[in-house]
């Protein structure tokens, strides 16, 4: 059992690391210990451009998802009856059983220049907007991927809050806004941060949204991996990109988790 996990989970990752030091000669990989791939990737401006773009796009996606999910999670946790809450959570699970690719394709059609949304906007007298093949398109994709999960995680942590604490805040004269900021947010911190970390991991590694909705150019790191790996034998260079991504993700996750489970104010 453990062997299986070792052989086919750790094995590939270790091999990936080793491979990043190999060199490609005549379209064949040769074992070697050479920093050429690292040097080549790290000295190219397009790599840093892609890294920067991937970082800010996934950060933006994470922020947007968290902000957009919060009122929804709040409504599910505090405004719905227990029965309606179960129905809502069940509905939120459904997207996990539909193909992400099919949903992406549907968006492609919906927000196309002649798509349903633009058609509806035109009917009420607004111009056509380009929504596909730009950052907006990518963000729609990221939200499709992350929003259901974020709402579920946030709603769980909100529903677990002791209602008496909130009532106490009300009785002590807190305004709704300050109740949310100084009572509810700190209590639900773990769930909110964990949801954000998941969003970041998902959108950082996703290549479908930036490729099919964001127009693939300029590329993100994940697209870079797919392109270099699929278009030839430049696996070692893709490996460099992949290892860089893993390092960033680990740093972000650890920072997030220590924030989530760290001491409370």
């Amino acid at each position: 059992m453990l062997l299986m996990q070792l052989a086919f989970f750790v094995g590939p990752l270790i091999f990936l690391t080793i491979m990043s030091f190999w060199i490609v000669k005549n379209y064949r990989m040769e074992p070697s210990f050479d920093f050429a791939n690292w040097e080549r990737m790290y000295t190219r401006p397009f790599f840093w451009d892609a890294l920067g773009r991937t970082l800010w796009m996934s950060a933006l996606a994470t922020l947007l998802t968290s902000l957009l999910a919060f009122p929804a999670a709040f409504a599910i946790a505090f405004r719905l009856s227990p029965r309606a809450r179960q129905v809502a959570l069940f509905l939120l699970i459904i997207p996990f059983f539909t193909s992400y690719l099919v949903r992406t394709y549907a968006w492609q059609v919906i927000i196309a220049d002649n798509g349903v949304v633009n058609g509806a906007l035109a009917a009420i007298g607004f111009g056509r907007y380009q929504m596909l093949n730009n950052v907006f398109g990518s963000l729609v994709g990221y939200l499709t991927l992350c929003l259901p999960l974020a709402v579920i995680l946030q709603a769980w942590s909100l529903a677990a809050i002791d209602r008496r604490l909130i009532e106490a805040a009300w009785n002590l004269g807190c305004s709704p806004a300050s109740t949310v900021v100084s009572v509810i947010l700190p209590l639900a911190k773990t769930g909110i941060v964990v949801a954000a970390v998941f969003c970041f991991i998902l959108s950082f590694g996703d290549f479908v949204a930036p490729y099919y909705l964001g127009g693939s150019k300029p590329p993100t790191l994940s697209i870079l991996i797919v392109d270099t790996a699929k278009s030839g034998q430049q696996w070692p260079r893709s490996a460099v990109v992949a290892l860089t991504m893993i390092a960033i993700l680990m740093a972000v996750s650890f920072a997030g988790l220590s924030l989530a489970y760290g001491r409370r104010k």
Binding site: L2, F15, I225, A239, A242, L249
Partner: peptide, 25 residues
């Protein structure tokens, strides 16, 4: 460590796992 091994795979982006497994396989 054992549990981490057992639970970690979904947190590695699929493209990276795909590349690593392609190379390994």
């Amino acid at each position: 460590l054992f549990l981490a091994l057992g639970l970690l795979p979904p947190t590695i982006p699929a493209v990276i796992m795909g590349l690593a497994m392609l190379a390994w396989f």
